[in-house]
């Protein structure tokens, strides 16, 4: 799919991955996440904790509420899914009143926000975001950017595959050819 890619991502860095459709942005992120076995070469992720992966699929059960989905996500990692923490994470992404509604009754944008609440609640140092702005409105976009920047300032790292220009001056950029 692609070859000759070599980069080191340091704590505090945000890297945008650009490229036309089918150039392998998703595959690259899934390789880093460990969901896709690379044919050659290797990926090293420092630390014990698995990276956070936000892909095309929302990773939400449509029959559960955003709150239940988030609590399951945290419990899966062996963390105590405290209701207060989850609620504040959902508030942060702008889902104030809808945490008690099953996800299938939410709009596409709200579902995306429910998935984004994982970023706020996560303790993973490395975030892999695949088209995080899909279905989001302007304020949702702002929220993602500010959460991602706050994560980088806190010593985390972000790899973000996108078609848009994020407008971040200090971001690194990786171009994948078709």
């Amino acid at each position: 799919m692609f070859q000759g890619i070599d980069f080191d991502l340091e704590p505090g860095e945000l890297m945008e991955v650009h490229g036309p459709n089918g150039s392998g942005k998703t595959t690259l992120l899934r390789c880093i996440a460990g969901l896709f076995k690379e044919e050659s070469g290797h990926v090293d992720v420092a630390g014990e904790e698995r990276p956070l992966y936000l892909g095309h699929k929302p990773g939400l059960s449509l029959l559960l509420t955003p709150l239940e989905n988030l609590r399951w996500y945290l419990a899966l990692q062996g963390r105590e899914p405290r209701r207060e923490d989850c609620l504040s994470a959902l508030r942060r992404v702008g889902l104030n009143g809808s945490h008690l509604v099953p996800c299938r009754s939410l709009s596409a944008g709200q579902q995306r926000r429910a998935a984004l609440a994982r970023l706020v609640a996560s303790s993973a140092p490395l975030w892999l975001l695949d088209e995080p702005f899909a279905a989001l409105d302007e304020s949702g976009r702002e929220i993602v950017l500010s959460i991602a920047q706050a994560h980088c300032h806190g010593g985390g790292a972000v790899v973000c595959a996108t078609h848009e220009d994020l407008g971040l001056a200090d971001a690194r950029r990786l171009e994948l050819a078709a």
């Binding site: 698995r50 939400l60 996500y73």
Partner: peptide, 16 residues
């Protein structure tokens, strides 16, 4: 269902 909504990949990623 888990495969389609992506909760399966999250389970594989984070279930430890």
């Amino acid at each position: 269902r888990d495969f389609e909504d992506g909760t399966l990949e999250q389970m594989l990623l984070h279930g430890r």
